[in-house]
C-alpha cells in the first residue's frame, strides 16, 4: 500500500544576497524524506528558525523546492499544477487573523476556494459553506459576519473551515494553536482530532509546544537549523531520544511539566 503523502529528498536552498538593495542571509534545508498515511498525524518540531514553517510552505507549494519529489497517493505533484495540489493539500496559517480577508464576509471567504476550484453552482456552494461551518462548530449565521466580529477561537475554526471546504486529504497547520488560550486551544485540538477520525485526514502539524505534540501526533520530525535530527514514533522519541538535541528538548519540556 502506498502512503497518502510521500516526500522524497525534499531540499531547499536560499543563497545569501549582499547587494545594495537587499541583504538576506542564506538558508538551506537539507534533504528530508518522510511518509504520511491517512488518518495519521505528523508533528514537525524544532526551535525558531529551524525551517519548520518553510517545510510546510514547500508542501503546500508556497515556496519552490530546489530538488526532491512529493507524491500524493503515488502521483507526483508538479510545482506548476497548483490546482491539483490545493484540492488535496490545504494549509492553516499561523495567524488566523491575517489569513482571513477583513473586507469580505465569512461566506465570501469560504466561497473563494469553491469558486476557483470547483464547478458548483451558487446553491450548491451555499450548501457546502453551511455544511462546513457546522462541521467546525460555527453557526449558519456566521456567514454574514466579518472577520473583526469573530473571537480568536472562532477565527481559528474559520481558518480550519477554509482548509476543509475543498475536502482535502492532507492538512498542513503552521502553529495553529499558538495564539489561543488553553481552553480554546483544547477545544480546537479536540475538534481537529474528531474531524481527523471522521474524515480520515492526514494531518501535518508544525509546533514547538511539545505537550500538544505528544498528545496528538503519531510520529514526529525534529528539525534543527534546516537539518533533520531525528524522526520516528512520537512515544519512542519522547521516551528514548537518540540525538542529544532531542534529548535536550524533551528534558526541558519535562522539567516544565513535572512537579518539583
Amino acid at each position: 500500500m502506498t502512503a497518502l503523502l510521500n516526500v522524497e529528498e525534499l531540499c531547499f536552498e536560499q543563497r545569501a544576497k549582499h547587494n545594495w538593495f537587499n541583504q538576506r542571509s542564506g538558508f538551506t534545508l537539507s534533504p528530508i524524506s518522510f511518509e504520511l498515511n491517512s488518518g495519521e498525524t505528523l508533528a514537525i518540531v524544532g526551535e525558531n528558525g529551524s525551517g519548520k514553517s518553510l517545510l510546510g510552505k514547500l508542501l503546500v507549494g508556497a515556496e519552490k523546492p530546489k530538488s526532491g519529489k512529493i507524491f500524493l497517493n503515488g502521483q507526483k505533484l508538479s510545482s506548476h499544477n497548483i490546482k491539483q495540489r490545493c484540492l488535496n493539500i490545504r494549509m492553516v496559517f499561523q495567524h488566523s487573523n491575517e489569513s482571513l480577508n477583513p473586507g469580505i464576509t465569512v461566506s465570501k471567504i469560504l466561497e473563494e476556494p469553491l469558486l476557483l476550484n470547483t464547478q458548483l453552482n451558487t446553491a450548491q456552494r451555499l450548501n457546502k459553506i453551511v455544511e462546513t461551518l457546522k462541521m467546525v462548530g460555527l453557526l449558519t449565521e456566521h456567514m454574514y459576519f466579518y472577520r473583526h466580529m469573530l473571537s480568536d477561537g472562532q477565527r481559528q475554526r474559520l481558518a480550519l473551515a477554509k482548509a476543509l471546504i475543498l475536502d482535502p486529504q492532507v492538512i498542513v497547520a503552521d502553529e495553529p494553536f499558538a495564539a489561543l488560550d488553553p481552553s480554546v486551544r483544547s477545544q480546537t485540538i479536540n475538534l481537529i482530532m474528531q474531524l481527523q477520525k471522521d474524515l480520515g485526514l492526514g494531518f501535518i502539524f508544525i509546533s514547538h509546544n511539545l505537550g500538544i505534540v505528544r498528545h496528538i501526533s503519531d510520529r514526529a520530525l525534529i528539525l534543527k537549523q534546516g537539518q533533520l535530527v531525528e524522526t520516528g514514533k512520537t512515544e519512542v522519541i519522547f521516551n528514548w531520544p537518540k540525538d542529544k538535541y532531542t534529548e535536550k528538548l524533551v528534558t526541558s519540556h519535562q522539567s516544565l511539566i513535572a512537579p518539583k
Partner: peptide
Amino acid sequence: EYVLASKLDGA
C-alpha cells in the same frame, strides 16, 4: 497573508 492564501487556492 490572505493574498498568499488565495494564491495557494490558485487565484
